[in-house]
Amino acid sequence: MSSRIEILNDGGYRSDGRRQYELRSIDIDMSPQGTADGCAVVSHGLTQVQVCVFGPREARKRAETLHDRAVLNVEVGVLPFSAGERRRRGRADRRILELAASIKSTFEPVIQTSLYPRSQIDIFVSVLAQDGGLLQACINATSVALASAGIALGDLVCAVSGGVHGTFPLLDLSALEEGDLPNVTVAITPRSGKVTLVTLETRLHVDRFGEVFARACEAGRVIHTEMRRAVRARTSKLVDAMGAGTKGTGEEDVERDVLMSEINDF
C-alpha cells in the first residue's frame, strides 16, 4: 500500500512540514511517578513513551542473580490505544519481546552493573502513543529514567531513527515514513562516539546506509544536548530545594568521603 502523500516534495519538505534532517520536537518530563526510583516520559513529536526504573534492589528470584553484577530486566507494555488501530498486545508478543531485548542489549554494556552484585534493575517501558520512532523513544526515555534513578551509567545513550528516500537520507521518521522507507535506528554514547545499537528492518544499499548512519550519529549528539539539559534542570531543581532547607553540612560530607572503598572488603 503506497501512500499518495509525498515523502519528500520538490521543495525539500516532508509530509509533516519538516526538512530532510529536521528532528521532531522533543519533550522530556522527569516528574516522579508512583513509587519508582526513576521515571521519565519522552516524546518525539506524537510518539510518547514512559519508562519507570526500579532498582537496584533485591532480586525477586534468587536463582537468577549473578554473583558479580546486577541483572537487568526489561518489560515493555504497549497501550492498546497507542496506535491508530487498536490492538491489544500480550506481554509475550514477538515484537514486544524483540523491543525489550534490544533495549536490554543496548543498556547492558552501559550500566555499570558490576557495582551492584546480586541485585536486580527493573526497567518498565509503557508505550503511550506511537507515531514512528518507537525504539528511539524507548531508548532515550530509558537513559533519562536510569539517570534519574541514580544508577551509574557510562554515558547517556541517545538514539535516532533514520531512513532513505531514493537517495536522500531522512532523520526521525514518523509512522507514515516508516511504513514506506527502509529505516534504521542508531543508538550512540556521545562521549566516546561508540555505537551501542544499530537495527535495520528492511533492505538498504550499503552506500545509502553509510550516509544515513553518519547523519544519525550526528543527530544523536543533538538529542544528547536535550537530554543533558533536562537531567541538569532536574538535578538543579532538587539541589536548590535541598539547599533551601539546610543550614550547611560541609563537615559531615568531608568526613564521609574520606573513607573511599567501592566494595568494602571484609
Binding site: G34, C52, F54, E75, G77, F124
Partner: peptide, 12 residues
C-alpha cells in the same frame, strides 16, 4: 491492564 510499575513486587 496493570503496568508492572504499579505492583513492582508481584510476579507476572
Amino acid at each position: 491492564t496493570c503496568s508492572p510499575s504499579a505492583y513492582p513486587h508481584l510476579s507476572s
